[in-house]
Amino acid sequence: MDKDRLLYLLENDKSGQNSPAEADELEAWYRSAETRPALTDGLSADGLSALENKIFARIERANIESQESVEELPVGKPGWFAWGKVAAAVLFLIVAGIGLYMFQRQSGRITERTAFGETRVLTLPDGSEVTLNGNSVLSYDAEWSDLREVLLEGEGYFNVVHTKDHRKFRVRTGADFSLDVLGTQFNVSKRESGTRIVLDEGKVRCNLGDSEKDTLVLRPGEMVQFRKKPSDYQRERVETGLYSAWKDHKLVFKNTSLREVAGILRDTYGLETEASRPELLDRQISGSVPTDNVDLLLQGLAEASAVTITRDGDLLTIESKSR
């Protein structure tokens, strides 16, 4: 095989455009190398051990560096968050969280749940509205005191009304994480893949821990996410609209990997995904798919990523189209 042919086949493989014959040709090239000798067979025992240790040291070092890069992020300074100045604004948040926060069902507590794939609009005692996404639970005290606090597991879009006495509205997603807002609209969800907050407009203060100092104030267009510990958060600027589209019965992707999409399908629709080859899940898709009809959604996904998706009950199987 010449280099142009190989590069052609590899490009096609990436986009899933290889015909079965071309896929076989690439496979044959990959396999043909098996006849070459193993480099490590010709090494001395010490050389082998040195190589084993060298690569392992590289791995350990990279693992440590990636941990440090998360820890080094600056923590927002509290104090410049002027509650009184927050105009009614659209605030958009997504919170997705690992770990299950156990609800303590108390007397006088109201709990609302949605099924997989169901979305429902709720009105809270103060007149605020919450749109709950599928597979989500919202609970709150029937009688609020000074603080308007709700507990969320899953995902929801909030439209919070501003009270005359400037009472705080708090969304809690777990013992270790909550957000404070005042008279805005926002979207919160807590899922298995991690916790994510995206702010569309206005301001929100994230409470990362027990200490008053552990707070982070988000600016419009910013996203904060963490997997487990709120203090290990990462902050970046994003296109916020991508994260709220579900409310309008669609999902919008921009260079989103199928792996991430699989996470959404699991969290919101209760669908598990398996891939015939793991690298298929690294394919990225861009575009918009409707969420009203799950089968239509899957069809859109399959077309956008040039794979076939077969559904058997709650199990999806992703396969390369060319095979």
Partner: peptide, 20 residues
């Protein structure tokens, strides 16, 4: 098949081991 790179690279790792 096996040629230049193999020999050179094995030498490299053995040298690393020897120095250690």
């Amino acid at each position: 098949g096996e040629e230049g790179n193999y020999i050179e690279d094995r030498l490299h790792y053995d040298e690393l081991a020897r120095a250690l």
